[in-house]
Amino acid sequence: MARTIENGIVIDVDITTPADDEVSPGYQLRFADALPREVVGTPLDDIVVDRLAGSSGCFEWFKNALADIREDARH
């Protein structure tokens, strides 16, 4: 996941969809399509995403990635 943060605010997001089974890619693609509308323009520390675009499992991956992004942004 590539990201662009400026002054603590998300200004761009780019997501890869690494699914390797037949069902997950559809959910991941819908999640990836909906995510920018939810986070672009939002302060990094204010982002809260769980179920999005009918993808109840993708938010766990995103939550973990977001924790890494927040940690990187602090350094």
Rank of each mutant, 00 (worst) to 15 (best):
R70K: 15
T16V: 14
D20K: 13
N7E: 11
V40N: 00
L44H: 07
A67T: 13
E38S: 06
P36M: 11
A2P: 00
R3D: 08
A53Y: 01
L35M: 04
T42I: 13
D72S: 08
D45Q: 13
E71H: 08
V49C: 03
R74H: 10
D68L: 05
Y27W: 06
E6I: 11
S56Y: 02
R74W: 04
R51P: 01
P43Y: 09
D46K: 10
Q28N: 06
A67H: 06
G41S: 03
K63M: 04
D46P: 02
D14H: 11
A73M: 07
R51C: 02
D72F: 09
D14T: 12
S55T: 06
T42H: 08
G8E: 12
P43A: 12
P25I: 05
A53H: 02
V49F: 05
L52E: 02
E38P: 02
A53R: 00
L52G: 00
D68R: 14
R74S: 15
V10A: 09
R51L: 03
S55N: 15
A73W: 15
R74E: 11
L35F: 11
V39A: 01
D14V: 07
Y27I: 04
A73F: 07
G54A: 09
N7S: 12
P43L: 09
V48G: 01
W61T: 05
V49K: 04
A2N: 15
V13L: 13
V39K: 03
E6C: 03
D50F: 03
S56Q: 07
A73V: 01
A65S: 14
P25T: 09
G8I: 13
R3H: 12
W61R: 02
I5N: 05
D46L: 05
W61E: 12
T42F: 01
L35W: 08
D50T: 05
D45N: 13
A65M: 08
I5Q: 03
M1Y: 12
L66P: 04
D12C: 02
I11F: 04
E22D: 08
F31G: 14
D14L: 09
F31M: 08
G26S: 12
S55R: 00
E60Y: 05
P43C: 13
R70F: 09
P18F: 07
I15H: 11
V48T: 10
G57N: 10
D33A: 03
E6M: 02
L44P: 10
V40P: 00
N7Q: 15
Q28T: 00
T17G: 01
D20P: 01
Q28S: 06
S24G: 08
M1N: 12
L66E: 09
L29A: 10
W61N: 10
N64D: 14
E22T: 14
D46G: 04
E60N: 06
L52K: 02
I9N: 01
L29V: 11
M1Q: 11
A32K: 12
M1V: 12
C58D: 14
I15W: 12
S55M: 00
K63I: 02
A53W: 01
D50K: 06
V39L: 05
A32N: 14
L44T: 09
A53V: 00
A19K: 05
